[in-house]
Design a protein around this nucleic acid. Structure first.
Lengths: 215, 215, 215, 215
DNA sequence: AATGAATGAGCGTTCATTCAT
DNA sequence: AATGAATGAACGCTCATTCAT
C-alpha cells in the first residue's frame, strides 16, 4: 500500500523525435536528462530554459532538439526517471500479516522519497497546475495506487476489520490526496514537521480512518 | 470546524497605487475586479492578460493601472472576495453538542463553496504553484482553520473522545490537506465523485481518524 | 481594357487586430506601411524582417504588432496601396471608338505602372510563389480584369470584328498572362526591352490575336 | 517550335563536391536525385529539407553531402532531369509545311509535359522567385527556345506570311511568356481549363498573333 | 481619471552544414 | 562512402508596464 502519486506507467504528453542510436547519442541524451533535472529542480518547470539545460549538459542549444521535441518532452523523460525512484521506494511486495506495519512502511518510504525529490516534485506540481497534460499524467499515475488501495480496503471490509460504511474508492482517493498534499506542503512548500511525527501521525490517521483495530 | 483553505486575512503581495476616491473611481475599480475574476476563471492565473481584463471591464488598458499596481494586485483583490465567499459558507459559530453533525455541515459547506468557485480555485492553485507569494498566502489562510481544528482536537482528546495518540497540529493539517486536495481533484481537475458520497465519506474518514465514536 | 494583375478589391489574407483610433495611431500605422513598402522593395517578401520595418518606421519592434498581426498582414496592406496605384493607372472609363487605341493606352498604362513598382511587384511574385494565400489574392485580382476582357472579346465577336473561333475566357486569360509575365520578366527580372517597342509589340500581338483589323 | 521554358543546358548554381566513382556511389546519388524530386514536388523548393530527402533516399543525412554541395545543387540536378523530359516532349525536328500543325503539336507537347510535371514546375517557379540564380537559369533556358521562335518569325515575315510590323524577338518572348504563364496558372495554380480548349485557344492566339492565314 | 499607443526584453525552435567515427 | 549526431545563428512574437494626451 505505497501512498505514491507516481505509481503506473502511462503514455507521455510528447514523443521523442527519434529512437536512440549511437553510443554518443545515448550519452548526450542521458546528459540532457540529467541536466534538465538539475535545471527543473533549480528553476521550476516554468522558468527552466532550454538554453540553460543545453548549457548545463555541455551541448549546443540545437542539440537539445536532436533528442527532445520540446520542454514538455524532456520533462516527461525526467518524470519517468522520477517515477522509477518513487516506485522503487514503495516496493513492498511481501503481503504482511500486520497491516499497520505495512502501511507505516509504505508511508515512510513514500515520504522519504518525496523528501529526497522535493524540488522536482514541486516542479511537477507546477507543471500540473499549468499544463493540463501533466495534470492528467499525475492523476493517471496516482490512480494505479488508488486502485490498489481501494481493493485492499474492500478486502479488509470483507474480512471485517475495516469500517464497512466507507466507500472504498473515495476513501482510497482521499487518503492518497492527504498523503501527497502533506508531502507537498511539508517538503516542497517548507512547512516543516518532524519526520517521525509525520510518519506516525499519517499512519495512525490512515489506520483510524479505516477503523482498523490497533495496539 | 470549517475545512477551508481560505480562512484568515493577511497582507497582499502588491499594494494598489492609490486608495479609492471618487464615485466613478469606485465603480471602475469594482468593474475591474469583477472582470478580472471572469478572466481568471476563464484563462487561469498565468494566461490571464491585463488587456483582456480591461476590455472585459469596458475600460482602457491604462486605466487598469490607475487602480491596481499589477496582475498580482488584482488577483489578490479577487482572492479577497473569494475568501469572503468561502468563509461565509463555512460559518457555523454555534458550537454543537453533536460533533459529527458539525463536521458534516462544515465539510458540506466547504465542498459546496469549492464547487461553486472551482475555476477560480484552480487559478489560485496555479498562482500558488508559480508564485511563492501566493503559496504563502494560501498557507497562511488555511493555517487559521488548521489552528482552530487543532485546538478542537486537543479539546476532544482531553474530553476522552478523540484518539490521544494523535499529534493535534499534524493531524489537523493532514485532514485539511485531504479536504483541499480532494476538492481540487474533484471539482477543478474534473475527477467526478457523487457529491453526497464525497461529503459522507470525507466526514466519516475525518471522524474515524480522530476515533470519535459514532452511531 | 487595362491589362492589370491587380484590378479588384478582394478579402485580404490576414486581418488587422484593431481598427484605427487616435491621430497618433494613424500616423504610426501609415509610417509602418510606408516603411514596410521600402523594406519589401529592398529585400523582397521573404527576406524582409519585422525588426527592419519597425526600425525604418522609427518605432519599437513591439509597436509593429499594435497595428499588424504579422508580416502577411502588413504585406496585404502594402498590396492594397499598390493596387490603388495600378488601378488608377489603368482607368480609361470612356469607351473608345478606336479599339486599338484603347488597348494601346491600357497596355502602356499598365506597363508604366508595373515599371514604376517593379521591385514591389517582384516581391509580390515571391509572396505568391511561397504563400498560397497571396497566389489566390493575385489570381482573384487579375480575374476581375480578365472577366472584363472576356466580355469585351465576346462583344467584338458578336460585332463581327473579332475571331469567332476563340474561346473568350481562355483568350482573355492568355493575353492577361502574357502581359503580366512580360512585365515581370522585363522590369522585375531585368530583361530589358525598349519601352516603346514593348508597348507597340504587345498591343499589336493583342489586336492580331483577336483578328481585329488595323491600319 | 516547342514553347518550352527549359530548352538549353547552362552552368548550374553550385558544383557537386566530387564526380561519381564507384557503382555504389552512383546508385546512392541517383537515389538522392529521385528522392529529392519527390520531396521538392511534395514540399516545394523552400520547405524541402535535406533530412527528408536523405530519409526518402534511405541514406544518412551526412551522405547527402558526399554527392551534393547544397540544396541548390540537388535542385539543379533535379531540374536537369526535368529539362530532359520537357525537351523530349517538344522535339519535332522535322520542319513541316503546315506551320499551324507544327505550332499545335509543339504547344500540346509542352502543355502535356507541364501538366505531368506541374508540382515540380511550381517548385521551380518558387526557386526562381526566391533565388536569383534560378531565375537566371530559367531565363537562359527559355531563351534558347525564344531565339528559335524569333528566327522562325523572321523567316515567316520574309516569306510574307507573318505580320511584318512585329518585332520578332519581343513577339517571340511575349508568346513564350504567355505559354509558360498559362501553363503555370492552369496546372500549378489549379485554375482548371479543359485541356483541348487550352491547346486550341493558345495555338489560335499564337497563329493569329503572327497573322498567319488559317483554314 | 481615463485613454490607448508605445515600449523592448526575452526565448523557443529550425535546419543547412560540418565532423568524428 | 556512409553514418547520424552536433552545431549555432537567426527571428518572430508576447505582454506587462509606462506615458503623452
Amino acid at each position: 500500500m505505497p501512498p505514491s502519486d507516481l505509481a503506473s506507467s502511462e503514455p507521455a504528453p510528447s514523443e521523442p523525435p527519434v529512437p536512440r542510436r549511437t553510443r554518443r547519442g545515448i550519452r548526450t541524451k542521458d546528459a540532457l536528462v540529467a541536466a534538465a533535472r538539475r535545471i527543473f529542480e533549480r528553476d521550476g518547470y516554468l522558468d527552466a530554459r532550454i538554453v540553460d539545460i543545453a548549457a548545463e549538459a555541455g551541448v549546443a542549444t540545437g542539440s537539445f532538439y536532436t533528442h527532445f521535441a520540446s520542454k514538455d518532452d524532456v520533462f516527461t523523460a525526467v518524470l519517468a526517471d522520477l517515477q522509477d525512484e518513487m516506485l522503487h521506494a514503495g516496493v513492498s511486495d511481501s503481503p504482511r500479516k500486520d497491516v499497520g506495519r505495512g502501511v507505516e512502511d509504505a508511508n515512510r518510504a513514500y515520504l522519504e522519497a518525496y523528501s529526497r525529490n522535493a524540488a522536482l516534485m514541486a516542479a511537477m506540481e507546477q507543471a500540473a497546475a499549468v499544463d493540463r497534460r501533466f495534470l492528467e499524467l499525475r492523476l493517471q499515475r496516482s490512480q494505479a495506487f488508488i486502485d490498489r488501495s481501494a481493493a485492499a480496503i474492500t478486502r479488509l471490509q470483507k474480512a471485517g476489520v475495516a469500517d464497512p460504511a466507507l466507500d472504498p474508492a473515495v476513501t482510497a482517493r482521499a487518503l492518497s490526496a492527504m498523503m501527497s498534499r502533506m508531502a507537498y506542503v511539508t517538503f516542497a512548500a517548507d512547512q516543516p514537521v518532524p519526520f517521525e511525527t509525520l510518519v506516525q501521525t499519517l499512519t495512525r490517521v490512515w489506520m483510524n480512518a479505516l477503523r482498523i483495530p490497533q495496539d
